[in-house]
Design a protein around this nucleic acid. Structure first.
Lengths: 153, 153
DNA sequence: CGCTTGTTGTGAACCGGTGTCAATAACCAC
DNA sequence: GTGGTTATTGACACCGGTTCACAACAAGCG
């Protein structure tokens, strides 16, 4: 049941930087790829493949979701993109632009809180001490109830 | 985006106890239901609907997955069954027999560690203090790398 | 400019899960 | 028992999210 090892995050600052990475790995910088990267760089937060495809199309460039999935996978292998599963629904993709992010998701209202890994180090340490387990909330988030929902419950 | 509130866990000791609950709520104790409960009580751990259906069939009783899904949902509403999402793949179902359980899942080998909630209270407290967030690992587990996988990495 | 080969769209297939609907069978009253 | 009410069932279609297969296309190299 071993999964392919996770590529280390490769934070990038712009499309051209990714282009260099792509070409360096024998890849090409296709039009679709460029548009998708534009959208990723412009995105406010993690987004589904479908949504990203929609954004690219809204830019006047027809693209198939299949292609978006393939590209996201490719970019993920390069370490430029990461995907996560925030509750039910489709997987979400985001640039690793400024390093990893970890997530807390409210099961009641669906709100997503993205935090820097350091803020979870104490938690991680606690879990390691108790179970010898290295917790990681970048791919699957911490699930529960946010303060707001707890308040009006 | 509010989800239906979670029914409190109703630990049960045997099929007849569930039968009573079912009848008490205007439900019936059908053959499928009984077989499914038998399988659930015999199960080693959380199992997918497909798997449970398979078990029932292996007992010589043909059953449709659709029916299994419906029954699991019904039993979950009674608080007798709970489902969880341990990583990718189908949802898994288990009796709440002895109260809630929380889970840690290794992303590398897929191993599942079920623990009593008390063992995670310190972690929960830590998360509450830092984020005002009430973490819960019964529906979505803590994800990461188990000791064994960390060792031979 | 042309060749190689990475990339694309199309369309089908897959998986997990839900909805519909007529047929069946628990349970209750008598 | 018998009959009627209605929960439950199987069958089958369908849905969202994702992957596969393959022929057509185009990026980048010589």
């Amino acid at each position: 049941m071993t999964r392919p090892a996770r590529t280390p995050a490769v934070p990038v600052d712009g499309v051209d930087e990714v282009a260099a990475l792509l070409r360096g790995g024998g890849g090409r910088v296709s039009a679709v790829r460029q548009r998708l990267l534009d959208v990723l760089f412009a995105a406010a937060g993690p987004a589904s493949a479908e949504r990203l495809a929609g954004e690219v199309r809204r830019g006047g460039f027809p693209v198939d979701v299949t292609s978006v999935y393939r590209n996201l996978e490719h970019l993920e292998q390069l370490g430029v993109v990461r995907h996560m599963h925030l509750g039910h629904g489709p997987g979400l993709y985001a640039l690793t632009r400024s390093g990893e992010q970890e997530y807390l998701v409210c099961e009641s209202c669906g709100s997503v809180l993205g935090v820097e890994p350091e803020r979870l180090d104490a938690v991680r340490e606690q879990i390691r001490a108790e179970f010898g387990f290295a917790a990681d909330f970048t791919h699957f988030p911490i699930s529960g109830t946010c303060a707001a929902c707890a308040a009006d419950a």
